[in-house]
């Protein structure tokens, strides 16, 4: 059970959060997006072993989404960032 440091609320237990998968850039405008690029956006994720970028929402707390970097092997939380904050 992870202890997740919410950028607004501080460290809270994992069940308070919703997992949102890898952050992806939405390809726009629709008219210029190839089928392959759209399928990639909808369905394909890197799912890397090791440091992994993912979005979480503190659904049972402040309700905010943020970006986390977490190691998928050791589960250590490497960093958390508010959306839009530089790396």
């Amino acid at each position: 059970m992870l202890l997740i440091p919410c950028p607004w609320c501080g460290p809270r237990d994992e069940p308070e959060f919703l997992f949102g998968g890898e952050p992806v850039t939405r390809p726009v405008p629709a008219e210029h997006v190839t089928d392959a690029a759209w399928a990639d956006y909808l369905y394909f994720r890197d799912n890397d072993k090791g440091p992994h970028r993912e979005v979480w929402c503190h659904a049972a707390g402040c309700g905010q989404w943020f970006v986390m970097e977490r190691d998928t092997v050791t589960h250590s939380v490497l960093s958390v960032r508010k959306p839009g904050e530089p790396a």
Partner: peptide, 13 residues
């Protein structure tokens, strides 16, 4: 509601 919030926060902040 969750969908509106997620889109505003992450796509249209």
């Amino acid at each position: 509601l969750a969908m509106l919030e997620a889109w505003r926060q992450t796509e249209y902040p």
